[in-house]
Design a protein around this nucleic acid. Structure first.
Lengths: 355, 355
DNA sequence: CTGAAAGCGCTTACAG
DNA sequence: CTGAAAGCGCTTACAG
């Protein structure tokens, strides 16, 4: 190891960063109060005289004191970690959800720990159980589609772990739900197509096991029905939310001689599959075929023509779901209103009136 | 609140999950040893008689005992959390990196906490410092491009936080680096284009502030030079790794009357920009223009024709970077070899010999 | 409104 | 190879 000269003496500011961090005992001693009083201030107890509070808080700022989350966690029997549990949706969706959660916990002393899992695995719930119990998580956000699994929610309730569920409809009590109203987003797509004059419309739906898929399908079909358009069974194809499944579905839809003039897809990936098939078959979008997606992913604006799609407000969703976990129960109980994020259609260039 | 009958008596298995978790004291008492001995077993100390170890380990398994990470962390003055620090690259890249890190820490008792940041913000390093110090992180993975910031690495060294840096070249000592050899990936793209017969080639480079961009540019230019092809300055355009900047660069490159017959792009997003411009200008890919990207993102196979691109092995990279943080220093010191992940070209349909 | 004692579940430092 | 004591930095439960 190379010989090194001792580091130059630091300024007082530098010392506070390299010297051992202050503890609650240091603050108590310097402020001339008991550590219990400092603890009360850390935990925002009202049982502290305002001038005592001010004095101690000023001192904490000056010293740069931050309570140790592990010591607090040990005493509380609960960590300062929020978990995000999800099962492999698209990358952009997950990243946006993470950004939203981080928006909510910024400067709160909480951190976000990620837990992807495979909900088709028979023991994935045990995996989540170990995760929340070993880390004594403060709470977890459940992202679709694991959010739709009642057995998962039941397990969390049983072990006493707080959670919020993000889903297309209210599957749980309001204090635990962020509802994304996928039905409304799909209905808006239907209204738009009807307004353009389309009558022969098709739907490439997501997999039946997904609540989001069911809601989007129902919202689309019902909105069309309200406007007097019947969607025959032959015009609805269930696919798998993947590009490849979208290709397969589009091939069926576009092979017959009477093609639909518009297709609504349960997500953008499948819409990209429609683009692929249309391009190969020489069908011009939007002149001969209108297409709408769902997600408003980056892909939507990379496609040509840019894809009209339903935006989900994913980051807001994540922010709300995380913020709900941070509320203390008193507040949460009083907030009886259902938390919602509403989708809306982003119109680009992939639709026009039928030729 | 609705009246509820008391819960039915549970089976013994259920009791172990709902009853208070066992502690080191329970294990010590049940095994008839001191808690210090149990502690030695938890920490894999060799100073335990094998039969004592076997007996206690069997008991821990039977009881389902797992040591409390917060209590251990408090005593160790170090948490069981790995941080991932990054600055807004593409979503798929981040998600793959996370998956890789999680591969490495699975069943290790460690968890992954994510910390996106904005490296253009003047005080982002302070933000990372607070993050690692407050949480007493066990270590952090630095993802490009924050991994390239020497001031960040210096800060981490100063506060005594372990880190690994993922970058195109070795910026630090081997024990702290995962090298992605972007130069080689770009060279492979150059070789491929030369082999196809291209001579008038252009390059849309990433931003000069990114080491990855510099390496890809250098690797591409040098490999062409070795094969006798000079790339004039006018054929190199610096762009911003974004779709829009790729569009702008392609417009310049494809506007003149003597167009290049092939374009290599520093990432897939910019390649998608080339596709957009070519489509609008009626230039057929690959017949009139060959295009290669870098990343092999999902977008590469959504484009038409599917984009030939350089795959990076991102998940492996993340796995190695996290695994290095878990090694104890003895092992790490002995592992003098440089950790590497090598890129390779994935050939699809976006290139052919010049017309 | 404030505080002294005991404890959260582990590890370190010291003895043997 | 094993253990009793003290301590990590907080909070709870109790008293005043």
């Amino acid at each position: 190891m190379p010989a090194r000269t001792p580091p130059a003496p630091k300024t007082s500011v530098a010392v506070t960063t390299t010297t051992k961090a202050a503890t609650i005992n240091d603050i108590a001693r310097l402020a001339g109060v008991s550590k219990k009083t400092v603890s009360r201030i850390i935990n925002h107890s009202p049982l502290v005289r305002p001038d005592t509070r001010d004095k101690v808080e000023a001192l904490m700022r000056e010293v740069g004191y931050v309570p140790d989350p592990m010591a607090r966690g040990l005493a509380f029997r609960k960590s300062f970690l929020i978990g995000m549990v999800y099962d492999n949706p698209t990358a952009q969706f997950i990243v946006n959800m993470q950004y939203g959660a981080l928006d909510a916990i910024r400067n709160s002393g909480f951190e976000l720990v990620v837990h992807p899992c495979d909900s088709r695995s028979p023991n994935y719930i045990d995996g989540v159980r170990r995760f929340v119990q070993q880390q004594k998580l403060h709470g977890v956000m459940l992202v679709p589609r694991v959010s739709e699994d009642q057995a998962l929610a039941d397990m969390l309730a049983e072990v006493g772990c707080r959670y919020t569920r993000i889903a297309a409809v209210a599957l749980d009590e309001p204090a635990r739900m962020v509802v994304t109203h996928d039905r409304d987003g799909a209905a808006e797509a239907a209204d738009y197509l009807q307004t353009l004059g389309h009558r022969d419309i098709a739907l490439i739906a997501g997999p039946g096991g997904y609540r989001s898929a069911l809601e989007r399908t129902a919202g689309f079909v019902e909105a069309l029905a309200q406007r007097g358009i019947e969607l025959p069974k032959s015009r609805i194809i269930e696919a798998g939310y993947t590009f490849e499944s979208g290709v397969a579905a589009a091939e069926k839809l576009l092979a017959g001689k009477r093609r639909p003039t518009a297709i609504f897809c349960g997500n953008d990936e499948m819409a990209a599959g429609v683009y692929r098939v249309a391009l190969r078959a020489g069908i011009n979008i939007p002149r001969q075929l209108s297409v709408i997606g769902y997600d408003d992913s980056p892909l939507a604006s990379r496609l040509w023509p840019p894809l009209t799609s339903v935006r989900r407000g994913t980051r807001d969703t994540g922010r709300i779901a995380a913020a709900m976990l941070l509320q203390d129960s008193a507040e949460a109980a009083s907030a009886l209103s259902l938390h919602s994020v509403h989708p809306h259609l982003v119109v680009r260039d992939s639709c026009q009136p039928p030729g």
